[in-house]
Amino acid sequence: MNRGRWGWGAVAAAAGLAWVAASWFATGLDRPRPAAAGGITIPRGATAAQVARFLTDAGVFAHPALARLALSVTGLPGGPKAGTYRFGAGASARAVLDAVGRGAVEQVRVVLPEGLTAREMARVLGAAGVTDPVRFEALCYDEGAPGRWSLPGPTLEGYLFPDTYRFARDLAPEEVVSALVRRFREVTAPLMPEARARGLDLRSWVTLASMIEKETGVPEERPLVAAVFWNRLRRGMRLESDPTVIYGIPDFDGNLTREHLRTDHPYNTYVRKGLPAGPVANPGRESLEAAVRPAPVSYLYFVSRNDGTHVFSDTYEEHRRWVGRYQKRRR
C-alpha cells in the first residue's frame, strides 16, 4: 500500500515536472533573456553537452539540462554551427537557438587592398582573426594549391582578389581562399575574351596586371603603364620593372640597389626579356582592365615624380632628363 502511494507520488511528480517543462517551452523560449546579451563561441567539434554549457554560461538558459532539452526539442538541422555569435539585449532563447542552428555567426569586415601579396594578405586576415596566417600563407604558396582551384601556376599569387569582405572568425584557410578565388573569377570572367584576343592566357594576363598594380596607384595612369609594357614587349625590349625584381629578393629590406638589378632570377625583368615568372601581387579590377585595354600612346619609359605620379616619355633621351630631375642615383 505504501509502495503504491510512493509510486503514484513519483508519477505525479514526474507529471508535474513535465507540465512545468511544457509550460516553460510554451512561453520561456520566446521570453527576452537580458543575461543573454553579449556573445557565445562554439568551437568546431563541440559536443551537445558542451554547447549546452556554453548556452548556460551565456545566460541563455538557467541550467544545462534545460539547454540540452531545448536543443533536442527544437531539432536544429545538422546541429549547432561552430563560430562566434553576438546577441543584443533581450534576445530570446528561441532567437539564440535559431541563430546557432542557421550558423548566423558574427562577421568581421576585412579590407584587402589592391597590390598585396598573399603573404601580406595573410597578416591582414590573421590580425582580423579570420584565419590562421601561417596556415593561410603556407596554403597560398603550396605548389599543389592552384590545382585544387583549377588555376595555373605553382602558387595562388595573383588569384586572391583584393576587395572588402565580411568573414566569420576562425575559418579554415581553404574557406578564405575559396572566397577570394570566387571573387577573382567573378571579376575576370567578363574580361577574359579581351585577354585572349591579345594573346594572353590567364596567368600571363594576371602577371601583367600585377606589374601595373605595383607600378602605380593612380587610376588614370594604369592604362599608360600598361601601354609602356605592351610597347616594350612588341619591340623585344626588357620591361625593367622594379617591383618584379623586388618580388624575387628574399627578405627585401626596402633598398633596391644596382647589384639587385644585375642579379639574375626568374622575376628580374632588367635581366630577362618578357614577363616575369608569375604574378608579383594580387591585382584589382582596374589593373586587370588596363592590362587588356592599354592607352593608345607610344610611350616606352616612365619615372616616378616621388609623389605617387609618373612622367612618361617616348625616347630614352627624354627619359634620362626626367630621371636626372626626379631620381637619385642608386648605389
Rank of each mutant, 00 (worst) to 15 (best):
A13K: 06
R169Q: 13
A277L: 08
D30K: 09
T41C: 00
F61K: 12
E220V: 09
A52I: 13
T27I: 04
Y165Q: 11
I42Q: 08
P43H: 08
E186P: 02
R293A: 13
P154H: 08
A95D: 15
A138F: 08
V111R: 10
P162I: 01
E106C: 00
R166V: 06
T244R: 06
L200I: 03
V225S: 11
A138E: 15
E186H: 09
L66P: 07
A227H: 04
L300C: 07
E215S: 04
I40M: 15
E286A: 15
R33H: 01
V130M: 01
P266L: 00
A37F: 02
L200P: 08
G59M: 04
L66M: 12
P162R: 00
E175K: 13
T257Q: 10
A67V: 12
Y141C: 02
L151A: 06
W322R: 10
Y85R: 12
S304I: 04
L156T: 11
F252T: 05
D163E: 15
N2D: 10
S298M: 00
A35E: 14
R234L: 00
F312K: 04
F25G: 05
M237C: 09
A35K: 14
G129N: 02
Y316N: 11
A95Q: 15
S313A: 15
Y159T: 10
L202M: 08
G45E: 09
E259A: 15
S313Y: 12
Y85S: 12
P77V: 05
P77H: 08
R285L: 14
L200T: 07
V177I: 11
I246N: 06
D201K: 01
S178M: 02
P296C: 03
D132I: 04
F252D: 06
A52C: 13
R262T: 03
K328I: 03
A46C: 07
R119V: 11
S23V: 04
P32I: 02
V292C: 05
R325D: 03
L17C: 12
T315N: 11
Y141T: 07
A291S: 09
G28V: 01
A46M: 06
T207C: 06
T117M: 07
T74K: 14
T27D: 13
R321N: 09
A226Q: 10
E157R: 08
L29A: 09
N2P: 06
E318L: 00
L112K: 07
R68C: 01
E318N: 13
L300S: 09
Y316G: 01
S298T: 14
A65M: 11
S241N: 06
A145E: 06
F252V: 01
R86I: 03
A195E: 11
T41G: 01
A179W: 09
E114V: 02
L200H: 07
P283I: 03
A138W: 10
F161D: 11
L112W: 05
